[in-house]
Structure formats: C-alpha cells, structure tokens
Design a protein around this nucleic acid. Structure first.
Lengths: 210, 210
DNA sequence: TCGTTTCCTGACCATATGGTCAGCTCGAAG
DNA sequence: CTTCGAGCTGACCATATGGTCAGGAAACGA
C-alpha cells in the first residue's frame, strides 16, 4: 500500500481510505447487487473495520450513490471521443473503442450501472432526466447531421445509440457468460482486439459508413 | 381470479397459487434483485400469506431458481426460430423478431436473467456450461455455413451472437432508461416496430446480408 | 509541549428477514 | 357421514444487518 513507513498525512489517509472503500464497494455491489451487498463485506474487502467505513460514508446508500456517480462520470468522459470527428467512421469508431475499453477496465462499474438502471434508477433518475437526456439529444443531432451530409445511411439515431450502448456494455455486464462460453477463460488480448474489430465493423457497415 | 364461486379443485389450487407466486416472484426479483427481494413482498404481490408461499416453495432460493429456469426455457424456445431458415435474412431476422418480442412481453424475466449472469450465475452456471454452450456452438456453426455459402460477410459468429443478445435484451434490461429518454413514456406500438426494424436493418446490413 | 481536531474502533442496539411449527380448514374418497 | 390428508396460517425464533456511540489514538498547529 504505502511504500514508505512514514506516518501518513491527514489528507493522504482520507484519500487512501476513501478510494479503497469506493473500490471495494464497486466490486461488492457489482457481485451482489445493492440489496445483497453488506457493509461488513465491503469493509472487509477494503481492509478496515465497518465502523471506520461508516465514519467516511454515512450510510450504505450514500456509498452506493458515490459509486454510481463515479461510473457515470467515467462513462460521460469517454463519450467525448465522439465529438470533433469528421464523420461516423472516426466518431462512432472512437466511441466504440472507448466504450469497449471501459467494459474491459471497469466491468464492475458497468455492472453496478446496469443494475441501477434495471431496478428503475432509484438513485440516478435525475441524471437520466437531465445530463443523459441532453447528451443523447446532442449526439442524436450529430448523427442526424452525418446522415444529412450523406456520410451514413438514414437510421434512427436513438436506436443506433442504444445499439452502441448495448453491444459495448454487454462485454462487461455479461462478461461471465462470455467467459463461460469461451471455455471458462477470460478473453485474451487478441480476443479483445477481435471483439472490438467485430463490433466496429458490423456497426459501421450496418449504418453504411464503410 | 376464479370466475365462478365454485370451490376449487386441489389441482387448480396448486396450479393457480404456484403460477401466481412465480409471476409475483419474477416481478419482485426483477425490481429488487435477489438480495433486495423479500419473501414477504413476493407473498404480498402474489396475494397470500408468507407461510403459504413457503408451503409451496421451500425457500427463497428455491423460488428464485424456478424463476430463472422458466426464463431460460422461454429464451431457448424462441431460439428455435433461427433454425430451418434458408439464410441469414430469414434466420437472423426471425431470431431478432422473437427476441425483441420477448423483451417486450417478458421484461422482468430478462432482467432476472441479466442479474443472475451479472452476479456470476450462481444458480444456472451448469446450464451455461451445458445447454447454452451447445446451443451457441450449433448456431455458430450454422452462421459459419451461411458465410461459407457466401450468404453473408465473414464475421466472427460468436461476436455476432453476442451482438444479437445484447441489442435485443437491451430493450428489456434498460427499458427504464429508454423510457426516460423517450420522455418518460414506454415505447408505443409504432416505436416498438421501429425499434425492431432498426435493429434488423442495422444488423443484417452489418453482416452484408441485405 | 499542549490543546484541538481528526481518525479510529469494539461494543452495542433496533429492526428486518428467512424459515419453522403446531394446529386449523376444507376438499377428496369411500 | 366420516375419515384422511392436502392446503393454509398466525405466532414465533434465530440470525444478520445497518447504523450508533462513547471513548481512545494519532496527527496537527501553535
């Protein structure tokens, strides 16, 4: 953990513990869901007493909220890759790359997000109605522009976005199923590259951008 | 419930209660997850006392297992639509139709399935390793045949199957998100038809089958 | 060095939950 | 009509869980 034996500063302590807790929480919430997760287990995974965890986060729900918000921000940030692209091949291609990379690097986060939405988004409903809605509208307009410019087939932008989300997140959310069908082994580097290429090729050809 | 006031036969009683419980359980498990669901709530939704529910199903886990198996069977049954098709346009087209219809008619089932897989498939791991693996192998071979016959582009069959599952199930699992982005209203008949067409067109064109 | 603030924790508590059980009701069968 | 067993249920229990709290340890600032 801390490389030196030097006593930790206050800031460092807070920072370290908070991130350790958040990381543990993401994992446990992903594996067990909100209802199935226990504060005790999260604390164990984070490596500190339950009471200490509840000193940093006032409640299980508070902690859960923070986890979900974290994910949403990562997710939004990656979405910028779609902007400033001359056309769908670059824009959507980059977006697929970014989202596939998130599925690979943050599968737990993706699962927590999926779980939250599946359960009716009790915690992030307002985000869906504000930030996500605006983001979606903006990208749909961008896609429509590409269509008008003859750079891709006239598809329904919303359903294209849903397809992008669905296919890319599937590799995180259903990673266990994919792993099982892959002989019980996680996808290798090569297989991940192939997955990315498959998704990109099929979708870009699907919108006649290739 | 029972239209006449006639006292119910034993068989009918058992049948009625079991289906009522299973229906309620599917809904509650979908909304709250396994950990968040309570036997009491399921019993309330089913309209009978908790103790009565536990007379039919020996435990919460037993009930959950039954729900997941139900879904898996529906899911497998729909998969037959892919067979006996002359080519990808008919076969994959029909499969998409069938799966979209399931997403519309059994969104709760789809959510329970998704949740189960996301949590590492504690209950249906053996199904994944046997039935699903065989099914997948068979369809991948079928797709490969179509490719060899020049009826579609040479895509990786596994990733095509993942895309099919992901896109179709997304309309159930992330139905809440879609509904929110749709102005808070569920997709109308027309919108569902458009969704089906969008998915079919993009995917079939994505594999150069159109 | 010393008072102050932050950090930390074992012990504790109220509540919720899965599951049991003794005993009741009521349809089935003769 | 009577017997029998399936169907049913209120009351109950052991346990697990989220959260509290009083008080100690440690870092900080002067």
């Amino acid at each position: 953990m801390n490389q030196t034996a030097r006593p930790l500063r206050r800031n460092e302590i807070r920072q370290q513990n908070e991130t350790a807790i958040l990381r543990a929480a993401e994992k446990v919430f992903a594996e067990a869901g909100f209802g199935g997760a226990t504060v005790q287990l999260i604390a164990d995974v984070a490596g500190l007493p339950k009471a200490n965890l509840l000193y940093y986060f006032t409640s299980k729900e508070d902690l859960y909220r923070r986890v979900v918000q974290n994910i949403f921000e990562i997710w939004l940030h990656a979405a910028e890759s779609m902007d400033n692209a001359p056309g769908p091949v670059e824009g959507i291609g980059a977006y697929i790359d970014a989202k596939m990379e998130i599925s690979r690097r943050h599968p737990d986060g993706s699962k927590v997000w999926a779980s939250e939405v599946m359960h009716g988004a009790p915690v992030i409903q307002d985000y869906l109605e504000t930030t996500l809605r605006e983001w979606t509208r903006g990208r749909a307009a961008l896609i429509q522009r590409w269509i008008d410019e003859g750079k891709m087939a006239p598809v329904n932008p919303d359903h294209l976005l849903y397809m992008l989300w669905a296919t890319t997140q599937h590799y995180a959310d259903f990673g266990h199923q994919i792993e099982t069908l892959n002989g019980g082994k996680p996808l290798s580097d090569v297989q991940w590259r192939a997955a990315k290429e498959s998704v990109k090729t099929m979708i870009l050809r699907g919108i006649s951008a290739l």
